[in-house]
């Protein structure tokens, strides 16, 4: 890796998700790649949900950080391969839990038409407060599209679950 690429990664490392400020864009898998091309440096980001209102802010943050570090680079938004919560690092998942958001389970790989028939049986989601798996879903959509709203039946606390995507 060239030193300029290292420098870009270092400049972007402090950037966190605008809505979940405990995890970085790198840890979330939104910041995909920094590469040197004949046309200059390119920073590749990928959107989470198609309609995620944070993406505009994220792109602005990336540009501002690059400008502040005096780096000239193009920011490229790339759709494929589609972002998945499976890219989230274990440390990011642990940070989410500590922040009060239950981290996502692995996505299901059994891609077949049959899967659409009925809701797949979901793994129990552990309460980020007390660790109990005695929890129920309150709503499929929480404060943002990427989260579902759950309730812990042991400690009675409501909490967000970062849905597998």
């Amino acid at each position: 890796m060239s030193s300029v690429v290292d420098k870009v990664w270092a400049a972007l490392e402090p950037l966190t998700d605008p809505e979940i400020p405990v995890v970085t864009l790198r840890e979330l898998g939104i910041l995909r790649e920094v590469r040197e091309t004949p046309a200059g440096i390119e920073v590749v980001i990928t959107p989470t949900y198609s309609g995620c209102p944070a993406m505009g802010q994220i792109e602005d943050d990336v540009r501002a950080s690059l400008a502040q570090a005096g780096i000239e680079a193009r920011v490229i938004t790339q759709l494929a391969p589609a972002w998945t919560t499976d890219w989230m690092s274990d440390e990011a998942k642990e940070k989410l839990r500590a922040y009060g958001i239950a981290p996502p389970h692995q996505t299901r790989k059994d891609v077949s038409v049959v899967k659409f028939m009925r809701r797949p049986v979901e793994q129990a989601v552990a309460c980020p407060q007390c660790g109990s798996t005695h929890t129920v879903v309150t709503s499929e959509f929480g404060s943002t599209a990427c989260k579902a709203l759950y309730k812990c039946l042991d400690c009675q606390e409501p909490f967000d679950y970062f849905k597998p995507y």
Binding site: Y49, S50, G51, C52, P53, S139, E140, F141, G142, S143, T144, A145
Partner: peptide, 13 residues
Amino acid sequence: MALANVSLDLIGQ
């Protein structure tokens, strides 16, 4: 909130 989020997904698509 659910319907607003569904709308955001659809408009994003």
